[in-house]
Structures are given as C-alpha cells and as structure tokens.
Design a protein around this nucleic acid. Structure first.
Lengths: 343, 343
DNA sequence: CTGTTAGCGCATTCAC
DNA sequence: GTGAATGCGCTAACAG
C-alpha cells in the first residue's frame, strides 16, 4: 500500500476488464454497465487505487487545478477570499493551487508561468495591475481567468470586484458629513489598491475644500496595528487640528484607536476614525470603528463559481465585470444605515 | 506561444542535439559542456520553453511539491506559519501545495490521499492528532514528513513545535502570581491544541488550589473577537468575582479587553487578561495584553528546512523533535522579563 | 560528455 | 457498452 503500485491496469486485471473500462468507470460512470461498474468500484476500494494526477494530466492535457494568485497569505483580506474559494470548491473534484506573489509583479509573472505549465482548469488573480508579460500570458491562456478585488476598464476575461476609489470616497464624505473639518489620511504599503483608496479620499476632500496633503501620512511598510499607532502619533504631533482619520485599512484604524485611547483623545467626540474592509473586530472595538465593508468571502466564492460555470460550458456567464459593491458601516455618529453602492 | 507547443524535443531540434541533453542542461548543467550549455540556454529562452511538470513527474516518479496541511487558512496563527514556509522555499525550485483541512481529521485524510498521489517531495502537517489511517499513510510515505505546532511522544518522522500545555501553565501561574485569586478560562473551538492549553490552565490552577470549573467557559464556535466579548459578558454576569482570565488565544483576549473597557472594568487593576500566541496587536493594545509568544514563522521556516535538509541527504537532520519553546510576555504587571521555556 | 532505448500511467481515437 | 493501439513529454538506465 506504500509504493503506489496500484494502477489502472492492476485494477483492470483484478476485475477482468481492460484498463480503459476502469478509466471510464471513474470518469463517466454512465457509460459503463451497472453491474460492471459495481465490481470496478469495489475493486478500486479494495485495492485502494488512487489515480495518478501526473499521468492523467499528461494524457489528457488538462488538470483539475485552479490556480489562485494573491499578493499575501497573511493579510486578512486575502485569507477571507481564500476561504470563499475553498468553500465553493469543496464539493467539486478540483484542487486549489495557491501562489503568493508578495505584492511583486515580477514574482507574479514567475508564478504564472509555472501555473500555466500545469494547464490549469482556471485561474484567479488578484488585482488589475498585472505586468505586460503577465497580461499576455493570461490572455493567451486556454482556461477561464478571473480578476478579483477590483474593477477596471479592460478585463482579461472575467472580473469581479468593487471600486476602492468609490468606497474610500464614500467613507470620506461620511467623515466630513459627520463633522470632520480637518480630515487626515493614514496609509501603509501603498499598493495599487491603497493608492486608489487614497485617490478617493483626496477627491472627496477636495469636493469639500478640505484636502491637505500635509495631513496625509503613509509608509511603504506593510500595515500593522503598531504602525497605525505610530503613524497617528506622528500625525497628531504635527497636526493637532486633525479631527477625523480615514485609514487605508482596519489594522491601521485599530492602532489609531489604541493610540487615541492612550492619549485620552475622546473617540468619536474629538476624533472620528474610519477603516477599510470591516474586519470582524471593528464592530466590537470600544468604541466601535466605522469601516467600509467589502465582500471578500463572496468574491472568492463567486470567482470560483464563474470558473465552474465556464468549465460546465455555461454560456450564461456574465458578459461584463461583476460589481460586488461595498457597504459603509457608520459607527461613530448617528447611525444612518448602510450605504450600498455598486451592483 | 499559447498552446505550449514548445517541448524538450523542439528545443533539442533547434539546437541540434538530443532531447536528453537539453533535459540534462536544465537539471544538471555541470554535466553538459559549457558551450553547448550556453546554446541550449539561449534556445530555451528564445523559444520560451517551460518544462511540463506532469511529464516530469510521470517519468521520474517525483515532484518538486511540498504539501502543507493546515486546519485553517484564515487563522492568523497558521498564516504566520505559511509565511515562514513560503519564505524558506522562495529560493528553492519547490512549490507549496496547500491543503485546508478545516479542523477535520476526515478531511485531512482525504487531502492526504490526494497529496500522496502526487508523490510529493515532502509533507508538512499541523498537529499530532491525525486519524489512524492518516498516520499509516504518513508512515508509509516515501518522503520526509514534518509534524508542526506541537510536540508529542511518537513522531511520525520529524517534528517541530512547542508545548501548549506548558505555555498555558506558565501563563496561568503568572496570572496567579500577579494576584489573581479567581482565575477564569475562556476558550473557543476547543480543538486538540486548545484542549491542551486548557489542561495547562487547569493544572496550574489546581497547584494553587484555585481551580473552578464553573469559571471555565467555552464554545465550539471558532474564536473571534466578538465571541471573546460575548463569553466574557456571560462569565462576568455569573462570576463577578473573576479577577483574571486566561484565553485560549489572542482574539478572545482582545474581545475581553474591549468588553471590559465598555463596562469600565479597570484593566489590569481589577482584571488581568492573558492571551495566547502574542499577535502583533497585543503589545500595542490599550492597555496592552499579556500573551504567550509562539514562534510560528520560525516553525514554518524550520519545518521546510528540515525537509530540504533531508532531501539534500543531510544526515545532520535532528534525531528527535525540535522544541521551539514559547515566551511569556507579561504586560499587565511589573514586568519581570520574558520566561523562555523549551528549546 | 552525449545519445539510444524504453517506459512512467493514463486518456484519446477509433474499432468492435 | 467495451477494447486495442497509440502517444502525451519527459527521464532512468544504460551505452558509447
């Protein structure tokens, strides 16, 4: 049972049929007579036969692998997406192959090349900022491709996401509507999605004549709660007038909350804080923190389902990008109900 | 460039050598004369040749895949381990194949079977509570296997982890030493690792004659910050005497901190809180939270390195389990320096 | 250092 | 409904 000696041929011999019949019994049972099917199934179970995926891939030119390319496995945001992907694939005879690009387009290119060499059944890639080479590879790929997390003008194939710009702008307008006269921006890592959030913040501030680049503080380091606290300490030292902060994500927002608590700054009375993504802890924080809810789990789920649909030859697959929208969760003022955009 | 028509044979024809020579040039360049090697490399680049992993696996009976089996991809703890694994493999010609067991031994068995059918170069599995069948498969596996996250009496092959029992016991003793007379336990999910932490808590309490099962409150649901807050609300309603809480992890601890803040319970004066894992945010929380630091990233790194060593035929691989220890981070009392155990 | 021969385990295409 | 022949692309084992 150890050395994988059990092959299609050995099962076939055991039952007294040819290998191809066993192969068929496994892949299209309806093409094999019921009694034979039964015997074959028993033999497979008894002998502990497990198909060799390499041989299968070589012979058929296909695999049952869906490649997933994300920039991080640590980031909560992507792990939620992954959960959705795993959930939707659970009942299917498909595997997930995860690639970690570490926010590097070059790395993405390399991994993509490897993934494509495996003739995947589908590909899920995060973002719309692929390198030229990656884009060409994806366009030439003979499998369905879904870009997730964002929306953009020219999808490679399928696309499902939401507008980071709009989400940030909506949050910022809320910040201003609830009284912030000196809004600030705190951001970390500044990847493309973060940049678009910043643009949304900036434009919403400018609409109100309240934009100040000096109140925008960022770092290339990846965001953590600690960095949120540090950046806020910096910010408030230089700009004590700040009365509202939009953060590029919830980790930073939490750090700011802690730092504000430490400095006995009354939140939300003297400072309102808004995060992005609406991690579970935002609602239960004390005081709770306003955030922009994004539908990460659903994004993962639906991305895989788009691929499954395409594989099943479902022509009802959506023609254009799918906008999942976002939902502002106001928590530091008179609740005014969730604002749902997109979709 | 799309249909992967470029094969070893086409590169060989292009250069005017045989396929096997190209194959060797790619795998053991030292066995090919430098000028030829140069020409082959150029042809490979020009034609954009990428080896077919399925064909390679079928012919050689091996792959360059390290299978990693974890119970969750969302849990911070495992994502840190994954980061370590990815980091140590980055420079190697190895891929990571991730399996998500969802805390189910049955699922683990299924995935294991799939993984083994791919003839992996190595296997990393979380925990020591594999099913009988899983254990047999792993013992029969012809590749190096590393169990991570825990230590136990009979390793399948290699093992690297720490004692959850000892970590919890040390934390609990600290809780008691710093004045808790009515210590409580709050736990969620109650997987095997959590159970061992609970045992450590219980025994340390009993040592001091302070154990009370009524003050131990748990839920089978996965732990979240919200659940931490809820369980604490329950606990304190029924046992207002509670003056110290050991939590099975940091999420719960954070939820308790928030709930305590909400109820104006002075932390740490009237309530001391201790988490487990020491997530980054524990130190920056207000007030900061005591926790048991675990070396998750290192665990991932070293697990992979053990496998790499074994693959390289390194007989210097450790004979027994590797204890990475833990480090209590006391933050809610007079700091008394980190207590490092194990190792 | 390079080439020849053979075959990995399975699915495709065509027969029956 | 079942089977025979053939080859997927690569590498192992041996020659030279």
């Amino acid at each position: 049972m150890s050395d994988r000696r059990v092959t299609l041929a050995s099962v076939a011999a055991h039952v007294g049929v040819s290998a191809i019949t066993v192969s068929r019994a496994m892949r299209s049972p309806e093409k094999v007579s019921p009694p034979l099917l039964e015997k074959i199934r028993k033999a497979v179970a008894d002998l502990g036969y497990v198909p060799d995926p390499a041989a299968r891939a070589l012979a058929s030119g296909r695999t049952d692998v869906i490649g997933v390319l994300v920039p991080s496995v640590t980031n909560n945001v992507f792990s939620d997406v992954l959960r959705g992907i795993y959930a939707s694939v659970e009942a299917e005879p498909l595997e997930i192959q995860l690639g970690n690009t570490r926010y590097s387009p070059v790395m993405e290119e390399t991994i993509l090349r490897v993934f494509l060499s495996q003739k995947p059944a589908g590909l899920v890639v995060a973002g719309i900022d692929q390198s030229e080479a990656s884009r060409r590879m994806l366009e030439a790929a003979s499998c369905p491709v879904v870009q997730i997390m964002e929306l953009g003008p020219d999808p490679i194939d399928m696309m499902i996401g939401f507008s980071h710009y709009d989400g940030a702008a909506a949050a910022t307008r809320h910040l201003i509507e609830t009284g912030s006269r000196h809004p600030a921006f705190v951001g970390a890592r500044m990847d493309p999605r973060t940049q678009r959030r910043f643009a949304g913040f900036r434009d919403a501030c400018e609409e109100a004549g309240l934009f100040s680049p000096a109140r925008c503080i960022t770092t290339p380091r990846p965001s953590t709660v600690t960095i949120g606290a540090e950046l806020f300490a910096d910010l408030i030292a230089r700009h004590p007038e700040v009365d509202g902060v939009f953060c590029n994500n919830d980790d930073l927002a939490l750090g700011i909350l802690f730092e504000a608590n430490r400095r006995r700054i009354a939140v939300p009375r003297d400072l309102t804080i808004c995060g992005f993504n609406d991690l579970e802890m935002m609602a239960v924080a004390e005081p709770s923190i306003t955030s922009v809810r994004t539908f990460r789990y659903d994004m993962g789920r639906q991305a895989t389902e788009l691929i499954l649909g395409r594989i099943a030859g479902d022509r009802a697959a959506p023609a254009g990008p799918v906008d999942l929208g976002f939902a502002l969760q106001p928590r530091q003022s008179t609740a005014r109900g969730a604002h749902v955009a997109g979709d």
